[in-house]
Design a protein around this nucleic acid. Structure first.
Lengths: 319, 319
DNA sequence: CTGAAAGCGCTTACAG
DNA sequence: CTGAAAGCGCTTACAG
């Protein structure tokens, strides 16, 4: 049988109320020996308070929901959430993950059903979601970013500037064929175009492809190099185009210059090594969690928001 | 304010008990007009039953926990869990994800606290976990796999047989440097060795590396080709070694033959294309979920377990 | 066919 | 310093 607070109370010879107080750290007014007895009884019975009972009595559960984005959930994020799970566990909170791929309605059902202590998201909430959460009285946390759109434009700008600096006079943007997976593509493209205009170059051509060699070859043929600098949606796309360029015997970076984004591990082992932009989600995510913990009021306030645009260009051999 | 069942009852002019029965589909005995009124009231008030209240009354919550493995949680899995989330939602169940990286004790706290309807795992539970879950009365589901170890040995065997078939007479195994991420390495290595002995070849040399060009170069130098067939832990490692071979000007597959595992998208765009083994987690995972739903008794039993060892060798240009 | 009451396991004023 | 009681929102026998 699963022990309940009554079992603990009986074993320790106190009331259920006392058990609750003591186990929740509000037992200053009890004698040391009583406290000791209760704690031992709880241990002995392997007592775990029922989440439902607590939630009902307290009005909000001990759950914290983390929304994970639809994009690749790489090893990085697992480490972060692994650590976060433990940190929250120390505070008696249990972190559960949820795919962000849900409608606002589903999110609504989730939060009113679960009554979580808070909800964390790796990507900014939509206005609709924000309003919903406020109405339901759920605290929402998101990484302290500049607006998502500005962020993507900045990436596009960075890519374009670097390509131009390295000698490209004709730019292209390689976006993802699958629009579902391309939430950031438009912002990137806009950033590239902005720089092109600013520098007096023609607007970038735009190609769409997936991680597929045939598509990469077709895209490259359409762009009819020699002499094109391609700002790629991510390193995988850049890698594809690098293979395509090799098959077509184009000189990289002489004829085809490539810049990726993400600095994936594999981007560092291509020949030549990919030029890319690294962006560490770790810092903003950790900061978000620290911020959350501090709002819980049990932890010092963190140092201050890290630079939200911690983009770093890593020059490789493809530009 | 958040509506509760009492609000719905008042608005519909019935008792709370009636609201509960009707909204949970056990309202056959009520008149059609009553049912209609209650449903409308619920809709109007945007009523969401409190998970805590339900859980407390019913003894188990509407949560289903899915344990996600510590390895890469790729796009595939997201799709699967996205679909599963919706399927379960239709049954009134809410799927939450949890990193599998937890101690048995933490798992115990989670399940006794949450009282989930079931717990699903993508990888087999340990005996300890299994025993814990049984004791707590939590239903556990896992993909219908042959034992994990057999599975990995089979992968190793497949890799080795293919390399030998393609002419390798000296084999090596490339494992992950980071042992944490190498849970399957030993089984694979054992499978390769088994085949080597069976075929009268020397035992395979074993190298350890990460996704890092310098490490790949060092590993390749240590194996001192020409003439080595390398069974790689995964496609990323194989890709690394392919780059290293190119830098050292080894002929692939003539001098260095490579076979990966996973059939990642990027493995299909290397030059030459990687020989690899594909294994679709989708089928076993979907099957597990179908199985779970059928046990809930609201869905027909699925067709029968898919072939758990649905490994498929995909010959590329590296062997 | 419907409603009133008890109970799920916990916490929190409140009375002693 | 401690215990008895009420109440959180729901469901489920049970009585009408």
């Amino acid at each position: 049988m699963i022990a309940k607070s009554e079992d603990v109370a009986r074993l320790a010879g106190v009331s259920r109320g006392a058990v609750s107080q003591i186990l929740n750290g509000r037992g200053e007014r009890f004698s040391a020996s009583t406290i000791e007895r209760v704690k031992e009884a709880a241990l002995e019975l392997d007592y775990q308070p029922s989440a439902a009972g607590r939630a009902l009595a307290m009005g909000s559960s001990d759950f914290v929901i983390a929304l994970i984005p639809n994009t690749t959930f790489g090893g990085n994020l697992q480490d972060i959430f692994g650590a976060a799970t433990e940190q929250l566990a120390e505070q008696g909170l249990t972190l559960v993950l949820r795919l962000a791929t849900t409608t606002t309605a589903a999110l609504g059902r989730l939060v009113t059903g679960m009554a979580p202590r808070a909800i964390l998201s790796l990507t900014p909430f939509s206005d609709e979601e924000r309003e919903l959460l406020e109405r339901r009285g759920v605290r929402a946390f998101e990484p302290h970013l500049a607006s998502e759109d500005q962020f993507d434009r900045e990436i596009g700008r960075l890519q374009a500037r670097h390509l131009i600096e390295r000698g490209s006079t004709r730019l292209a943007v390689a976006r993802l064929r699958d629009a579902r997976q391309d939430p950031f593509g438009q912002g990137r493209e806009d950033g590239v175009r902005e720089i092109c205009r600013q520098e007096g170059l023609a607007d970038p051509e735009v190609v769409h492809l997936g991680v597929d060699l045939d598509e990469a070859l077709a895209a490259l043929d359409r762009l009819s190099p020699p002499e094109i600098g391609i700002a790629c949606y991510n390193d995988d796309i850049a890698t594809c185009l690098l293979s395509a360029a090799r098959i077509r015997s184009f000189v990289v970076p002489g004829q085809v210059a490539l810049i990726g984004m993400d600095r994936t591990p594999l981007s560092q082992v291509t020949v030549p090594r990919l030029t890319t932009i690294s962006y560490d989600v770790t810092a903003p995510t950790k900061n978000m969690i620290a911020n959350f913990l501090s709002v819980l009021g049990r932890t010092p306030v963190p140092e201050g928001p890290p630079n939200a645009l911690a983009l770093e260009l890593e020059a490789g051999g493809t530009t």
